[in-house]
Structures are given as structure tokens and as C-alpha cells.
Simulated scan of single mutants.
Amino acid sequence: MRRVLHVTDCYSTGVGRAVDTIVGLSPEHEHHLLWAGEDDPAGKGFASTTALPGSSLARLRAVRAAVRATGADIVHAHSSRAGVYARAVPAGAPVVYQPHAYKLLDPRLPRAARTAVAAVERALGGRTDRVVVLSEQEARLAARLSPGAGRTVLPNVPSLASPGVRAPQPDGPRRRRVVMSGRVSPQKDPGWLAETAERLRERDPAVEVRWLGSADDPELTARLERAGVSVSGWLPADALVAELTAAGVYLHSAAYEGFPISVLDAAWCDAPVLAREIPAFAGTGLLTVADPAAAADRVLEVLAGGAVRERALQGARDLLREMNPQVQRQRLAEIYA
């Protein structure tokens, strides 16, 4: 048994669900959480939970204090900022760093910012014992940034495939509705989906487009609404299952990813999946689209049924053969060995 201290400043949505899944799939270890975020960790299997303080300097100190208080054998840092808090000064225990999508993958990151982020990652790489990544693309990047650290590809798994969540129960035929799941934030590129929605509205006004997630960015939310996209706000698991089960197409619009749990949740609900053509999806078999014009074309083809819809379904089903709780449980045993 190991004592694992999870550190994250974004315990919400995808990262929060990923942490919860890790805890649930490795109950033989004792898990503690040092956190900030919007979700509530109560009842999620943690032996203790401690809120991160407000300032960055205080957060550096909080990691060392939490290691001492919990007797942690391993610090598992989730996301880039938590990676700084756990590695900028010696944490007092081996550090496992899981970026959950390197910021360097953002294609819109200015060159100067890209250079600065890479320099910080390389500087902290010497204090990293293992990097946990979500795809082979991230593994190649980790090899350059933290060459002395071990590397493990830990596939994400559907967050909805967990005890207590009602299994998908189709209620009649799927609707002529396109959905995307995630926080309304620049990484998820709501503008890309909004442009797709505008093209769809010109060609078939009966097709609905809906964003499933919290409206974190008011300006981007307004852009979606101007395009006729409804924004659900945060949804509990059962409501998310109902939305994904009823949707005619799941379309993932993000500009960059590690590997999104939301796509796996859509696959688990057996929704036809289309994904924006980004490196995270290379080699997966998902049906991808390059731009909003191509996305609108493919959406209409999927909604029409036939071979394209079957391809979108099969790509999603194939994904779950490699990204499932059994595989993740095996990889976690290696990481915490």
C-alpha cells in the first residue's frame, strides 16, 4: 500500500473526473487530495482533503506540508500549475507529473510564450520521477521535456462508466441534435463549434446544436448563443448520460487535448462521434474533420444514416477497447509500484 498525495488546482470537470477515476481504480492505496476547483471531493474515496491556499508561494509550501502531514510516498501532480507547485521546490517525496494536456500543444500559443513554457517544463523535468501522459503524442513531448523521467501512457476512461451512474437507456430514435461537452473555455474552441452551427443552420435549420457544460467564459458563451447554440450549464452525471444518449452526433471542437474524457463518455453512450482533426486523435480510428465546413458536411451525413454514421459509431466503439477501466487499472499498478 502506498500513500498518494494528489495535487491539483483544477479539481473540476475533466481533471476532477480523471482524479476520481484513478482513486476508484486503485483502492489498495491510500489517497489524499490537496486541491482547488469547483467540484466537491466529499465521498470520493480520499483519506483526507485539504484546500490549496490562494497564493502561488503558499501553494509551494502547502505541498511540502501536506507530504509531511499525510506521510505521502508519492506526490501525483495533475495539470501544469500543480506540476509547478510540486516540483519548484523539493516536495519531500517522488513526484508523478500528469499534465492532462501540455499547454505547449495549444496551436494558438504565441512563440514567446511557447518558449517560456518549454523552458519551465525542462527546468522542472529534473525533479520529475515519472510523467503520466494520455497519448503517444504527449509521450514524445514528455521525452523531450523530462528526458530523465520514466513515462507511462495512462489511457483515460469514461467517467460515466462508474458505480452509481445510470447506464444509457435510449428512449426512441436519436434526435437531429449535435452536442459538444466541456467547459466553455478557449481550449475547447467554442468559436469553431459556433461556425459549424452557423453552416448547419444555413443548410438545415432543423438541426439543433447544444453545448453541454458550464459557461465559464461569458464572451465565448455569447458567441455560441449568437450562433444559435444552447448552453446547458453544468450537468450531473445522469443528466449528461441522457443528453449523450439522445444526441444524433457528438462533435468535439477542442483546439488541443491530452485525451478528452468527454469523447469517451460519448462513446460509452454509443453516440456517433466526430472529432476535430488534432494530434490527440491521430491513430485512434475516430472519424475526424479538418474545419467547420467539413464538420457541417459530416454531421449531415451522419444524421442521414448509412455508412458514414456506421463509421462514426465504430470508431467510438473501437476506442473503448483500449481506453477502459481494466487497462487503466494495470497502468496504475505500474505507476504506483
Results as ranks from 00 to 15, higher is better:
A333N: 08
A194I: 08
Y102S: 06
V308P: 09
A304N: 00
D270F: 00
G172S: 12
A255Q: 14
W35S: 02
A312N: 00
S135Q: 10
L235F: 01
E136Q: 14
R175L: 15
P53M: 09
D204S: 13
H252T: 04
P163V: 01
E310C: 07
S80G: 11
D318F: 00
P173I: 05
R317S: 08
R210T: 14
G14T: 04
E198G: 13
A337E: 12
M180T: 15
T49K: 08
D171L: 05
E202C: 14
A86M: 08
R59L: 11
L200Y: 08
L104I: 12
E277C: 02
Q98F: 02
A296M: 04
S26I: 07
D129A: 15
A93W: 06
G285A: 01
R226W: 15
G125W: 08
R111S: 15
H100M: 06
T50R: 15
L274H: 03
Y97E: 10
P110D: 06
V153E: 02
T8Y: 03
V184T: 09
A62S: 13
A142K: 00
D204L: 11
L319H: 07
E219H: 13
P41T: 06
A51I: 04
Q326W: 10
G150C: 00
A296L: 08
T8F: 03
G172F: 05
M1T: 11
G24I: 02
R210S: 13
V153L: 05
A91F: 03
R81K: 14
Q98H: 14
R81H: 10
R111I: 13
H78A: 12
A295K: 02
R331A: 14
D129G: 15
L60D: 07
S12Y: 02
P173D: 11
S146G: 01
A36R: 15
T21P: 07
R81Q: 13
R276G: 03
A304T: 02
V7F: 05
A101F: 07
T13Q: 03
A239Y: 09
D291F: 06
A139R: 15
R321H: 10
R114Y: 00
D189V: 01
E225M: 01
H6I: 05
